[in-house]
Design a protein around this nucleic acid. Structure first.
Length: 275
DNA sequence: AGACGTACCTGACCGC
DNA sequence: TGCGGTCAGGTACGTC
């Protein structure tokens, strides 16, 4: 699944192809994931020059010369690639967006599960709903630890909440809990501040390490691949490793569920390394 | 307002 | 081999 490190990897890869280029023509076909509408998306991105390729949390966005912002969220299964081509028509299953550039290349967005999003917005107010950005200067570990202390949800659920820290998803939430030595399902407010600080202290190193590894592909679902179809090399300690031995202590990795029914979310942990 | 449940979607996997 | 059922999971939204 694309989380902050995967999105950042793709952003870096796609930036040189998009920045300074003009979008000659664009296309989208799924109303549910295209905002404000398929028609308006195509109209407002057409004939626009891209200024910068940016990212906030898991959100990738491109500032356009006319003042609008093009927004791409990969959701669960969204992928981007760049290829030669001047036709907006790409006859492949799961392709739901195409941007034809003045470079003779086109950006292709495919998304089998259609949990992603393509949008054109007029300003950056969409960023307001996101919490702290891990690599920003104002990222304050003490503040995050204090806010976790006030949460009456499982620790992992709080780490996944984009309003607290932007960009953490399933894989890295489990990883951060593992390195912090805390079971993901413990109610955050029941964990001592000292231990919460230990967990929070692993957010930056884990994300940085994952960016250096160009993301993580190890996932039972929604396999992630970068702009060139390459998989990421980040290897999680616990995520997706149920039944395997912990490589710190050898204890069998376990899996559990947060919540019940259709809303249940899985978590993975080492019962010995995490208390 | 925070916590919680539901819905969206389909490839991959599982059991018979 | 084939087929129906189940799972996974980022996020918006409704409800209490």
């Amino acid at each position: 699944m694309p989380e902050l490190p995967e999105v950042e990897t793709i952003r870096r890869q796609i930036a040189p192809h998009l920045e300074g280029r003009r979008i000659v023509q664009s296309w989208a076909d799924v109303e549910r994931i295209t905002r404000p509408s398929v028609h308006e998306f195509m109209a407002r991105t057409r004939d626009q020059r891209v200024e910068r390729a940016l990212r906030r949390g898991k959100q990738m966005y491109f500032t356009l010369q006319g003042g609008d912002v093009l927004l791409i969220h990969l959701g669960m299964s969204g992928r981007l690639h760049v290829e030669p081509g001047t036709d907006v028509h790409v006859p492949l299953a799961h392709v739901h967006g195409v941007l034809v550039l003045d470079s003779g290349q086109r950006v292709v967005f495919s998304d089998p599960r259609t949990f992603g999003e393509l949008a054109v917005v007029s300003d950056l107010s969409f960023l307001d709903r996101l919490g702290r950005e891990p690599f920003d200067e104002d990222f304050d570990e003490e503040e995050i630890a204090q806010r976790l202390r006030a949460r009456r949800t499982p620790l992992k659920a709080a780490l996944l909440d984009q309003r607290l820290v932007a960009g953490i998803g399933n894989i890295y939430a489990d990883e951060i809990c593992f390195l912090g030595g805390v079971k993901p399902h413990l109610t955050a407010s029941s964990v001592s501040l000292q231990r919460l600080r230990r967990v929070v202290a692993h957010i930056l190193p884990v994300l940085q390490h994952a960016i250096d590894a160009q993301g993580a592909t190890t996932s039972p679902t929604g396999r992630y691949y970068d702009l060139f179809g390459q998989s990421g090399e980040f290897l999680p300690h616990v995520y997706g490793r149920t039944g395997e031995p912990c490589d710190r202590c050898g204890t069998t990795i376990r899996r559990g569920l947060l919540g019940r029914g259709k809303s249940a979310r899985s978590y993975h942990y080492c019962p010995r390394c995490q208390r």
